[in-house]
Design a protein around this nucleic acid. Sequence first.
DNA 1: GTTAGCACTCTTTATCATCGACTGCTAACA
DNA 2: TGTTAGCAGTCGATGATAAAGAGTGCTAAC
Lengths: 346, 346
Amino acid sequence: MELDNRKIIILKTIIKNYLATGEPVGSRTISKESGLSLSSATIRNEMSDLEEMGYILQPHTSAGRIPSDKGYRFYVDSILQESDNRVSEVTDIMLKRVDKLENLLKQMVKILAVDTNYAALVSGPVLSENKIRYLQLSQPSPVKLLLILVCEGNIIKTELISCKKPLDTEELLNLNLLLNNSLAGRSFKEITPKLIAELLVQAGSQRNLVSTILNAVVELMETGEESRDIYTSGATNILKYPELSETDKAQKLISAFEEKDELKELVAEVTRSETDNSHNVTVYLGGEGPIQNMQDCSLVTANYELGEGLRGVIGVIGPKRMDYEKVLHSMQVMMDQLDRMFGKEE
Amino acid sequence: MELDNRKIIILKTIIKNYLATGEPVGSRTISKESGLSLSSATIRNEMSDLEEMGYILQPHTSAGRIPSDKGYRFYVDSILQESDNRVSEVTDIMLKRVDKLENLLKQMVKILAVDTNYAALVSGPVLSENKIRYLQLSQPSPVKLLLILVCEGNIIKTELISCKKPLDTEELLNLNLLLNNSLAGRSFKEITPKLIAELLVQAGSQRNLVSTILNAVVELMETGEESRDIYTSGATNILKYPELSETDKAQKLISAFEEKDELKELVAEVTRSETDNSHNVTVYLGGEGPIQNMQDCSLVTANYELGEGLRGVIGVIGPKRMDYEKVLHSMQVMMDQLDRMFGKEE
DNA sequence: GTTAGCACTCTTTATCATCGACTGCTAACA
DNA sequence: TGTTAGCAGTCGATGATAAAGAGTGCTAAC
């Protein structure tokens, strides 16, 4: 059987209606709302077909139809295609100019949550190619060394290191020189065992100390997923959707949002799976890919990039019957905002 | 009327039972469980008295009694007294040695939540008297200055500052000298307008730059409540208690845990209200003090101190019928752990 | 002072009939 | 052949009613 135009219209009507109400939709409703002038009986026949083809299903005999995963998938894909061509309207979301990136992201995720009425998350950006600009050692107290690492994009990281015996000024200067000579300009990957070995040889008597420092540097450089910041908002929106608010499911979901660990993995997974999409907008339906343990949920994600290779993920989690059109649009607007704010700058 | 011994036993039995079940408790239950060999009828008479005295109340005519706020207060206070004398048993909570304080706190709050089955929060520590140990300026790129501020307790803060024109090495050195001379050893309060004015005079041609730097320093020093980190865990435990899991209340509470802003205020308020209690353990009943908008909740808080004046707040939020005994005990154990870990060190 | 017993209240739970929203099928129609 | 009207049948939702259960207050007796 073929999915002809009329079937498509009916399918879309069913889905839209279901998204809006959360209730199974019956043939009469469609007959009235689809725009087609067909009687409910005809619709019923078509619906029979659609069910047979697997796009919709019936929770129980005397109920209307709800979209199946295949149906959702079809719908989401067709929206995704449309919105590529659509110019996102300029909405006047007032993202007040904020001083810190962190605050900006917090603000963004909040707006997204309020705007969509779903749970939203944003990952802090991670440098894809994190290069050391320079590093600096100083000595706050006799047996402590402060390591300051400045990376491309002015990312600053510090670490306190204990050392056995105090260094005098000259030693400190030499150490700084030595480290900068070999490490400045290098990315994480370029700190090879060979390089480390060389450095240790050059270090001479300071061998142990240099080794400790190198460990600290490597640790700081590992912008590992574990260290990624995740900001969330609107987790409790989940409670608004009956199909998710059964105590058990809601608990799991909201916990995931609170503890963040799961979200980190999720972000990691999303980051890995690159597509050629412009902002890499992807829709995962419950059970697929990164959200296997989130039944009945949908996850919409997009990647953002702030220039200089700073990249992160933004996402919205809601029930399967989420208003995809709206969510995709909201995300688009967010992306545009970010592009505008950071495209111009620097 | 007087609260004689028998009344106290009955009252405690009522409360304990209510805490365990969440259901109003009737006279027969008490007759069986109180340990007193009295018939339910006698108990009923006593309960009448207790109700008249305001310690308990009846949700509706044909129901048992539940503790009133006055009842809770009585109960909590009596526990608090007891547990002062009690040696906290050593429980073998495995707080794995963690490298970062942040992780330790996260671990702690998680344990507390799991252990008590309520929602738990811990605030990151804040230096009560935050003194600058030294500060350092360096120049990562021609028009950027990196300000590094090292405070007592090895708290390190950094800030990137833009400057109009590049400084040469000597200027940078002088600037560092100037700033350290006047600021090192000072606490936030000691950076007075007078001091600032003096500094600006000494700065001479670098006046503008020094002003910018000073602003940054002051900003970094303000360990304002807004910048306090808050770690939470177990927010969804709230859903386990019927009296809180009505969508509306649960939503509010869990949101508070997610967005953290409210919690920050709460912590601020708790911090302000000092008592002479050893760990400053306090129980707030729903509506009292910092949790006015959290009806039907109780908040148990304690202060912790990590030496060097690093202080923070730890707390548990649950329904009014929370198992105070257990919570207070768990918190006690946490405090002991912290004391042990940080008392020995340094 | 304590207790047994009874009448009364009020919530909870179960049961049952009714209603309404659907579907699927058949037969008629264009 | 595609479309439609109509009807029987299914199943969940709703609401009313009854029965059960838990508790109290009061009174009278011990």
